[in-house]
Design a protein around this nucleic acid. Structure first.
Lengths: 216, 216
DNA sequence: CTCACCTTGAAACTTATGTTCTGACCCCAA
DNA sequence: TTGGGGTCAGAACATAAGTTTCAAGGTGAG
């Protein structure tokens, strides 16, 4: 297969549009959808470019089939339409958390993304993810290299697994959260480890963990 | 929304076919695809039944759009085409493992299934899953309620996380596997726990763990 | 310059595919 | 029986959507 290289702008635009269209509509666009979205004056030009994209391994076309476009990844495998969440950075004890909620400008293009079950965004709305560095989260049953999927929120309910920022210690941690009076109990998932108690002032909840992804 | 009830056979057949078609082709079928697959003599009959299925909340139809069928789940949410693997049972220390490799007969209908990243079946082929009961797998960083996705195999390479069956102990466990001479070292994922050594005779590898799924 | 060669335009063409109309069949209650 | 509602057939229709044709505009090498 022809390796990926930089595409002519028009072809890149077509490719981007197809991806976005599938993301939004669940089915691939028609030739004329592409034509209008990319300000192309004729379907033949779309057809021409699709043919080239097909030849170069960016997509598959089923001929004579309506909406017969199928995007391919680098290995020539069909690309799924599963939702992806941005991996905005890493989390490690003692390290500052990467900024979040700073969207708007750059698209997801500049971030790594990870595929998640469609069920997650459906249930929890907008999500992001952090890659875990080091073994300091082991008491939350989370290993080096795992990815935690997080729903950003400043408010947690008792029992939620949260991303907690301990101000004094300047440390991020993943624990179960229990507000007890003006103290917060941070309970490791591993029941053999003991809980941490600290004043509520010292704890900032940054988000709830909704899923952990570990691959081998 | 009208609650789910048993459908007339023809309508059920149509629904099943749509699901299968999407699974196999990645895009929804046309009215005529359905017509031929379900031995219906006229497209109008298909249209008629699709209209009823639409009315009853089994699917959405975008009118005047080719392949504009979108399946809905019980909550009226769009159904994804992410692959699903069967959850064939539970794994717990001291309990026998459920039979696997006994496919062929019953379809996946009788089992729970869980959605996984399309990447997993693509890389590992046929998979199944086990729900973890109890906290006995905690030293593998796996908690009660987690689901482990497993590629069935009797052969493991050193360093693989495997489902190991200890014959004498009659116990299933998840550990990293290292064959050392005629001994097997089973290394917990948690490096603070010590490894288990036992004779190779006593260890049966049932499969490799390819992913762990944990939701909150 | 000039000739290949890639790219674009416009329009026509063909096929795919959703929609509609009409009549028939079946079943069941009035 | 009779009539209405639900279902099915067959055919035709209308539009959506893939494909093709022909011509023209660029661009770079020789």
């Amino acid at each position: 297969m022809t390796p990926r290289k930089s595409l002519p702008p028009r072809r890149q635009k077509i490719l981007d549009f197809i991806q976005q269209f599938i993301q939004e509509n669940g089915i691939p666009p028609t030739v004329r959808d592409i034509q209008h979205a990319c300000d192309i004056s004729s379907t033949s030009v779309v057809d021409y470019n699709l043919r080239l994209l097909n030849r170069d391994g960016y997509l598959n076309r089923r001929s004579e089939v309506a909406r017969g476009i199928e995007l391919l990844d680098q290995e020539g495998q069909p690309v799924s339409n599963s939702p992806r969440v941005m991996v905005v950075g890493a989390i490690a004890a003692g390290q500052p958390l990467p900024v979040f909620s700073q969207e708007g400008a750059g698209s997801s293009a500049e971030f790594d993304t990870i595929e998640v079950s469609p069920e997650l965004p459906r249930r929890h709305g907008k999500l992001f993810a952090l890659r875990v560095k080091g073994t300091s989260m082991m008491d939350a049953l989370i290993d080096d290299g795992d990815v935690v999927v997080i729903k950003p929120t400043l408010q947690a309910d008792n029992g939620d697994m949260v991303v907690a920022w301990l101000k004094d210690e300047e440390e991020a941690t993943l624990k179960k959260y229990y507000l007890e009076g003006d103290q917060v109990r941070l309970q490791p998932a591993n029941s053999q480890m003991s809980a941490i108690y600290c004043p509520a002032r010292n704890v900032e909840v940054r988000g709830k963990v909704v899923s952990v992804i570990r691959k081998f």
